[in-house]
Amino acid sequence: MSGYLVRRLIESALILLGITFVTFVLLYMVPADPARQIAGRSATAETVANIRDQLGLNDPLFVQYFRYLGNLLQGDMGRSYLQRAEVADLIAARLPASLLLMVSAIVTELILGLTIGVVAALRRNRPADHTLMIFSFVSISAPQFVIGILLLYVFSVQFGWLPIGGYGTFAHLILPSITLGFLGAGWYSRMMRSSMIDVLEQDFVRTARAKGLSRLHIITRHVMPNAILPVIAMIGIDIGLFMSGIVVVESVFGWPGIGQLAWQAIQRVDIPVIMGVTMVSATAIVLGNLIADLVAPLIDPRIKTK
């Protein structure tokens, strides 16, 4: 396990290095001029040129990249062009809100998705199965901003049960979590249904039935631990999906997380902030996949780490 962990950590570091390079090159190619954004529309060409020189924007691409990479390795993500604050401080202030929303969304999608998948598998080819699979198809197909707006209209505008936006209480968390977890619930339900059906047809399940074990015991002790393995792998990937979808959801609900920070930075071409959010998101994705790979063998000892 230790050798596998070391190899995976090295692979993760290389992936993150590649992400920094690709993101930096793409931002370098953006036609917008950050110096002009900082100086303002009324600034003279001389002022803009001085700002570009101070920020090192006139240096070649690789000089800028390796300078950024060297600072990053020292824990310095740079300074926001427009907010005049350290990027690390800006992200640190917003990250707890995003992590809270992400964890809540994962819990929401797992509860919905696994419940629907198990019930559909146990009621295979029956009306309940067909109804639940239609729900899964709708949840997968519906855009998140549409789901968010509909939930706001129904539960906030029409009934007034939940706040229309903001942050700070459990009530503020409910609608964003459901919106973000709605898509994943559809994927998990379909995946869990297929996996459950496959496991239910295995010989060891027939043997358990022949021994006279109860249906509940067979499902909870034999079927579920085997059927849930694909779901565990999917959770790590889901973190990446959340990091992309969280921008939309945070904007709809006014949630003060890094998604909203990234959107503001993109609108203003604040490159250090965009790079910082990208690195935090990429790190979360890599760690999520790594944790999923390490947890899977603990649940099923037949999976070997090599």
Rank of each mutant, 00 (worst) to 15 (best):
I218N: 05
P301G: 06
R126K: 15
L180R: 07
Q202C: 05
L183A: 12
P127A: 10
L26W: 10
A282Q: 07
G184C: 05
L16Y: 10
A284S: 14
A208P: 05
A171N: 12
I134R: 10
L175G: 01
R124M: 07
R67K: 15
L57A: 11
V247G: 13
V154E: 00
I106S: 08
P225N: 10
Q267D: 10
Q260Y: 08
R94S: 15
K306A: 13
V30Q: 06
A208N: 03
R41E: 15
A210N: 07
I228A: 11
M29W: 12
I219E: 08
F253D: 00
L213K: 03
G240M: 12
A45R: 13
I149R: 00
Y167M: 05
V103H: 03
I235Q: 00
T305Q: 14
I164D: 00
S141T: 13
V48H: 02
K304T: 14
V119H: 00
A262K: 03
A88R: 15
D76V: 14
L101E: 09
V247Q: 11
Q144F: 00
K211T: 11
D300W: 03
T207S: 12
G117M: 10
A120I: 03
T283K: 04
L14E: 06
I134D: 01
K211Y: 13
P301R: 10
A208Y: 03
V205P: 03
G40Y: 02
V22G: 01
I258R: 10
N289V: 06
E250H: 08
I10Q: 07
D203L: 07
T131Q: 01
N125P: 01
Y28K: 05
